[in-house]
Amino acid sequence: MQLRYFAWVRERIGRDAETVEVPDTVATVGALIDWLSARDEAYAGAFAERDAIKVALDQEHVDHEAPLNGAREAAFFPPMTGG
């Protein structure tokens, strides 16, 4: 799965994208966040404000309970503001 990180999520992890093999036991967006958070301190820090993290699977916004269902891309970003 291709993972993309934006704004402070990217800054905390130290990269803007990567490709990972997600274990079969990771079935939802929330489980993916848990799995990533357990990788190391940078990921744990990036996802520490878990409720603030927005997610898109294959460019469609989803909530943390959404199933991965073979998605090819997940993007993680904090809420955006603008004017």
Rank of each mutant, 00 (worst) to 15 (best):
M1L: 11
Q2Y: 04
Q2L: 05
L3W: 01
F6C: 00
F6V: 00
F6A: 00
A7H: 05
A7W: 03
V9Q: 03
V9H: 02
V9P: 00
V9C: 04
R12P: 09
R12T: 09
I13L: 02
E18P: 03
V20Q: 08
E21Y: 14
V22S: 04
P23R: 08
D24K: 11
D24A: 15
D24W: 12
T25W: 13
T25C: 09
V26F: 08
V26C: 06
A27M: 12
V29F: 08
V29M: 03
L32G: 04
W35M: 02
L36N: 01
L36M: 07
L36F: 03
A38K: 04
R39N: 04
A42P: 07
Y43S: 04
Y43D: 06
A46S: 04
F47N: 05
F47M: 08
A48E: 15
R50L: 09
R50D: 12
D51T: 08
D51M: 12
D51F: 10
A52Y: 13
A52N: 15
I53W: 07
I53L: 08
V55W: 01
V55Q: 02
A56S: 07
L57F: 10
Q59T: 10
V62L: 13
V62D: 10
D63Y: 15
D63A: 14
H64G: 12
E65Q: 15
A66G: 08
P67G: 03
P67W: 11
L68A: 07
G70Y: 05
G70C: 10
E73H: 05
A74I: 00
A75F: 00
P78Y: 06
P79D: 07
G82N: 02
